[in-house]
């Protein structure tokens, strides 16, 4: 964990740069997920074997910047983000060009099934690796997520870990006003998961502590990561508009200043 904080900061700057250059939205979602992605790829995952499905595909820039930091996405490809003819659209690609993005996502509710399928395959292939899946509040609105949860518990997919990026701010309002997920921990427990809470899912140490709380059982695992949409840029935090809006020059400068001075 020694240099992971600097890595996170670098990925955060790259993420914001991608959004600014492209004049692209979805910044809040990416900043919400970035700590989870950095923690998984730089600390938790075996980089050559373990697999990750980003079910909340609208956080693509966080995934792109993290994979670029790992040299899994070439810099020259990163430069094409959001441009005509790019592999890197606003949501992860479906074309299999990037090995570490097994499936393109963007429509919510697919990720946990995909991750469960990858984890379940090991029963037949004899491979041995961990599968991680990051889901959003919106993902937890989708019935298919819960179909996958039932399956994962039924078949004791202990090689599957779902991380709920629980920022409680969805596409057009707060989750408590739309479909209340306050009992999200109880829901996953009831579905048969081993569950741990990260009180601050935008804190790498806190995430690590939560992962260490998970027991070595035959159950699939779940981390409820209490995150903040727009985390790390104070004027974006917990604001619905940063699900959609791009930054103007002043906002970008303020964001960079805040991060570099932090």
């Amino acid at each position: 964990m020694n240099n992971i904080f600097e890595i996170k900061r670098s990925c955060l700057l790259t993420t914001l740069e991608l959004h600014k250059r492209a004049n692209a939205g979805h910044i809040g979602a990416s900043l919400s997920s970035l700590d989870i992605l950095v923690y998984l790829f730089f600390h938790r995952m075996n980089k050559e074997e373990d697999k990750l499905i980003l079910s909340k595909g609208h956080a693509a820039t966080a995934l792109y910047s993290t994979l670029a930091k790992l040299s899994k996405i070439p810099e020259e490809m990163l430069d094409t983000f959001y441009k005509d003819g790019t592999v890197l659209a606003a949501h992860p690609p479906c074309n299999g060009v990037i090995k570490d993005i097994p499936f393109g996502t963007g429509s919510l509710g697919h990720g946990l099934s995909l991750a469960a399928g990858i984890a379940f395959s090991q029963r037949y292939t004899g491979k041995n690796f961990q599968t991680y899946c990051i889901v959003s509040d919106g993902d937890c609105n989708e019935g298919s997520t819960w179909e996958a949860a039932l399956f994962a518990a039924q078949h004791k997919l202990r090689n599957l870990t779902v991380i709920v990026d629980y920022n409680r701010l969805q596409g057009f309002g707060f989750s408590e006003e739309i479909l209340n997920l306050d009992s999200i921990k109880d829901k996953f427990l009831a579905f048969g998961f081993d569950v741990a809470i990260a009180d601050n899912g935008n804190d790498l140490n806190n995430l690590d502590s939560a992962f260490n709380l998970l027991s070595d059982t035959n159950k699939p695992r779940c981390i409820i990561a209490h995150t903040t949409k727009g985390a790390g840029v104070s004027f974006m935090e917990n604001k619905l508009e940063w699900h959609y809006l791009p930054m103007n020059d002043d906002q970008y400068e303020m964001a960079i200043k805040e991060i570099t001075n932090a």
């Binding site: 097994p102 499936f103 099934s113 469960a116 399928g117 379940f120 292939t125 179909e147 399956f151």
Partner: peptide, 21 residues
């Protein structure tokens, strides 16, 4: 028998195919 969960069945199948099945 994956249960009455066709959406999960199809996505899981895609992922299993990704793993060579």
């Amino acid at each position: 028998n994956i249960g009455v969960s066709e959406q999960n069945m199809i996505s899981m199948a895609a992922a299993m195919a990704h793993e060579g099945l």
